[in-house]
Write a protein that binds this DNA or RNA. Structure first.
Lengths: 177, 177
DNA sequence: ACCTGAACACCGTTCAAGT
DNA sequence: ACCTGAACACCGTTCAAGT
């Protein structure tokens, strides 16, 4: 069965969901595809490029939001769908600014009342907030999973409430409250 | 010369500032201290613990802020003082929540007008914003340094302006604008 | 064109043995 | 108590050689 870029991204995504970002190695992906590590490099330049592809897939199903609040909630949902989703997207955003869906779509959600560069800043503020909040949530989940920290009852509910609180504040401050 | 936990943290901090987070390995720290890697583990449990110590040092000089705006600006200054400072602190915040200075001090800056748990959420919102903004800034610097992306004139000024814009929004939304 | 085999230059961590 | 020597189980990446 021929190796393709797409099959590699599929396998990487599966490893991410099962093992988390720390378990996502090129060697592990290769092993799952019954192939030697070197073979991957015929289809993908390096691990960064593969991670960028995985990040794009995480954000792929995001609907086109009608307003900033929906956009933020859709982003949160997309990130939460896979283990360590926020961490992966943050990492890719670091070396591929403007490469991912929200960086392109979110400024438009502020363009009606803000000049272009301020709309970009507003979009970044919102994205930073969502990524930070979801990353904290998922890292907590990771710590619970490893047993380093005990699970608390109502943790998920509090996370939702806390996210809502911060989102309301950020949106209000950006003129959408 | 006897190895101590403090000398190890010093060396790690120096490596971070010179090589960035990606260059900060236990082996590199050991080499700079003229010692075998295994020796470090007599004074430090593992790399995570060492990174936590480095993060604490990054935030060490932070003054006690009178209000949320000053706190945010002080945090930004502290993070910017060392290469990849935001990334290190974010990483440590992930597995040591409540372990670092801002997590302990910032809620108090909102406690006068918000109930305790909302004050905590407000503090987290603010910290997420600052960490995200500075991380983006520093990653950009890193990309420029590597030559992957060209430096633009006025980049630093725009970063300051963008930070101010987002900070104003977040603070206003949190009732401090 | 596509993949293997094998290597290179690294990692974090452990642990018997030395002093 | 503190450090070395040496190993274990990994990494990402490259590249001649095979098909």
């Amino acid at each position: 069965m021929g190796l393709t870029r797409e099959r590699i991204v599929d396998a990487a995504y599966a490893v991410l969901d099962e093992q988390g970002l720390s378990g996502l190695s090129m060697r592990r992906v290769a092993q799952d595809l019954d192939v030697r590590p070197g073979a991957l490099y015929y289809h993908v330049a390096n691990k960064q490029e593969l991670l960028a592809e995985v990040a794009a897939r995480i954000l792929d199903g995001m609907p086109v939001a009608a307003d900033a609040r929906r956009g933020a909630c859709d982003l949160r949902d997309a990130l939460r769908r896979v283990r360590d989703g926020a961490e992966v997207v943050s990492f890719v955003l670091a070396f591929r600014p403007e490469g991912l869906a929200p960086s392109r779509a979110f400024p438009g959600l502020f363009a009606d009342r803000l000049p272009a560069r301020e709309a970009r800043w507003a979009a970044r503020t919102l994205v930073h907030y969502v990524l930070g909040a979801v990353a904290e949530e998922q890292n907590r989940t990771e710590l619970v999973r490893t047993g380093i920290v005990a699970d608390e009852p109502g943790r998920a509910d509090e996370a939702d409430e806390a996210f809502g609180f911060g989102l309301d504040a950020v949106l209000h401050g950006l003129g959408r409250g």
